[in-house]
Nucleic acid binder design. Structure first.
Lengths: 220, 220
DNA sequence: GAGCATATGTTAGATGCTCTTACTTTATAA
DNA sequence: TTATAAAGTAAGAGCATCTAACATATGCTC
């Protein structure tokens, strides 16, 4: 009588049931890959990208430490999944944030910067993963494509702000200045340099100031 | 080659002789702490701050893996020493680079930015250590003090550029904008984001552009 | 000098991590 | 029913950090 082991209740197909992270009743997990990615994301936020450990993620998902290697090549691939998810989330937030403002206005430029910095502050671990240790995922096509997509939005908005539908070199230059600035601001913020320097930050004011300075004709 | 003086002079006692990193003839090393810091610095550059290992540094210095713990509390203290050294080097480079230019000129502002970015590109590992993983050395007074010193130079130069000897809020604001920008530019550069975006960088041009935009009166 | 205290090495090992190999269990579909 | 693939486990190799106990050189006091 072989088939009547522990899964008495599952008479039909009824694949792995439980989704609770702790109490698993069946041999197969059912949703391990997604849960490992989520556990990785949480741990990256809690401990930082450097101190994330596969073992800890396994503990949280309630599986052995060997289990992830059926779903991921190695530790860096798990991190890459989280980075990729972050890129997509950041992109979507940008799209959502500029939507309410009329095209071609400074408000849209400011909105892009706001999303960038807020994302970094809200998810510093993932942000650091996305832009920090490039060694682990420098050749990843997906991430590069996502980065291009996001930066493309910035370039388009800068061109629109100038009243043009096509992106020209000056737009790329301005977009680059904006990117550099919010990128630096984000890192200074999440690394606590500003608080250490006793520099309170009025984000909206600074973003407006920078947007104005960058978008203005330099020869005036 | 300072610090090895006593060894040669003292003919009688003749303590640890060799300074070659590999072949040690005596039980005691003679200059282990300094050599461990240097090995750490090299490894941080070669493998990045995250992939530095104490064992590897020990191998390079030719000592057992337990030896460092007579000189450093733990791994992070070794890294902190390297970070501290980097801060001092960066500070000195700034002082040297602005010296040739007349006080109160934009050229000095540009020079500060040039040092910042060039340092990051020349020593990306140490730079990342200085500004990246704050978790390991966020409470270090020495590093905070060094940071204050460096940023103080920027503030002073900005005020001078305005024609004032005293630093006022507007100077702090401008210094902060400059810092954010070169900080972001540095990270984008060393993380290879610019090359991936097919964005060649004319550092001098960009620094001049930014210095002008930031130092200019925003209400013009 | 002699002898002790201290500084600075060593070896051995506890513990934790990543990742591999070999094996077991379950789901699917012919 | 049964072959096969998918998805888990256990065990362990290899490397890491760090501690403890021990060994040796240096420096200080006499």
């Amino acid at each position: 009588m072989s088939g009547t082991n522990r899964i008495m209740e599952n008479t039909k197909k009824a694949p792995s049931s439980t989704k609770s992270r702790t109490g698993r009743t069946t041999y197969h997990h059912g949703d391990l890959k997604a849960q490992l990615i989520e556990a990785t994301r949480e741990l990256v936020e809690e401990k930082g990208p450097d101190h994330f450990s596969v073992s800890e993620a396994c503990r949280r998902a309630g599986v052995s430490t060997a289990a992830p290697y059926k779903h991921f090549k190695d530790k860096t691939e798990m991190l890459r999944e989280v980075a990729s998810g972050g890129m997509q989330r950041q992109y979507q937030q940008m799209i959502d944030e500029i939507a309410p403002h009329p095209p071609g206005t400074l408000a849209r430029i400011v909105a892009l910067g706001r999303v960038y910095v807020r994302f970094a502050v809200a998810e510093p671990g993932v942000f650091r993963l996305m832009f920090g240790l490039s060694k682990d995922h420098e050749g990843d096509e997906t991430l590069v494509a996502l980065g291009h997509g996001t930066f493309g939005v910035v370039q388009r908005e800068v061109a629109l702000c100038r009243g043009s539908d096509v992106i020209e070199p000056q737009d790329e230059g301005r977009a680059f200045l904006l990117w550099s600035f919010v990128h630096g601001l984000s890192f200074l913020q999440i690394d606590g340099k500003l608080s250490k320097m006793d520099m309170p930050l009025d984000l909206e004011a600074v973003l407006n100031d920078v947007a104005l300075r960058v978008m203005r004709d330099p020869s005036s």
